[in-house]
């Protein structure tokens, strides 16, 4: 049966990349919509929630588009994929912009990487920009066909620190070991960009489209 996959557009980030990658793996039988309409999000079979930029701007844009509730309902009820800021804004609060309240669906905070972290005697550059390994903490349908420690593309200065470690589905080392993926019953959210992570990223998106939580 054709599924409608909705990519939430609230003016933050490179939605074209996300929707193109999903169209690429979805093929002809699924419909992909990019929308800022709560009604269309409510009617979707599955929802992708991307995001880029600063936490405060993302929260402001969500409010402006009256999307908070639609996002929260979808994140509780539908197969839901958060990407980058789409992971971070699900948490309670962020250190970014001198402290920012977030959607508060997932207990935990968003923290900045500490300054002057060293790797091999050299200072790590922030943002973390590039391909890093994701350690799959546990099995998950979205990891199907993706080997342990596969590299994905990251661009970020902040990371999530969930209160409940049982929701951690992936970790990554960048000076410290941080949570790069969380998963609850129907939700999977990544700090990396699957839409920019070549074959491994497309595999993950394809797994999401076929996921029946």
């Amino acid at each position: 049966m054709p599924k409608s996959i909705v990519v939430i557009d609230y003016g933050m980030g490179n939605l074209r990349s996300v929707s193109k990658a999903i169209e690429h793996v979805a093929g002809q039988q699924h419909r992909v919509h990019v929308t800022d309409q709560p009604r269309i999000i409510r009617e979707a079979d599955r929802v992708v929630f991307p995001g880029q930029g600063a936490a405060r701007d993302c929260m402001a844009a969500l409010s402006e588009h009256h999307l908070n509730e639609a996002v929260l309902v979808a994140a509780r009820e539908k197969p839901f994929l958060g990407i980058c800021m789409g992971l971070q804004v699900l948490m309670e609060s962020s250190e970014e912009n001198g402290g920012t309240e977030l959607l508060g669906m997932i207990p935990g905070r968003v923290k900045r990487f500490p300054p002057n972290m060293l790797q091999g005697g050299r200072r790590l550059k922030i943002p973390q920009m590039g391909w890093n390994q994701v350690y799959q903490v546990r099995e998950h349908p979205l990891w199907a066909g993706i080997p342990q420690d596969t590299r994905f593309y990251f661009v970020h200065s902040y990371y999530v620190d969930p209160g409940d470690t049982r929701i951690i589905a992936g970790t990554t080392g960048f000076g410290i070991d941080f949570t790069s993926v969380i998963a609850t019953e129907n939700l999977f959210a990544t700090q990396f960009h699957p839409e920019k992570s070549a074959g491994a990223g497309l595999q993950l998106l394809s797994n999401f489209i076929n996921w029946s939580p």
């Binding site: 074209r16 990349s17 193109k20 990658a21 690429h24 593309y153 839409e195 920019k196 992570s197 070549a198 990223g201 497309l202």
Partner: peptide, 8 residues
């Protein structure tokens, strides 16, 4: 390119 190549 962006429609076919999924890297930055």
């Amino acid at each position: 390119v962006a429609a076919q190549v999924f890297i930055p």
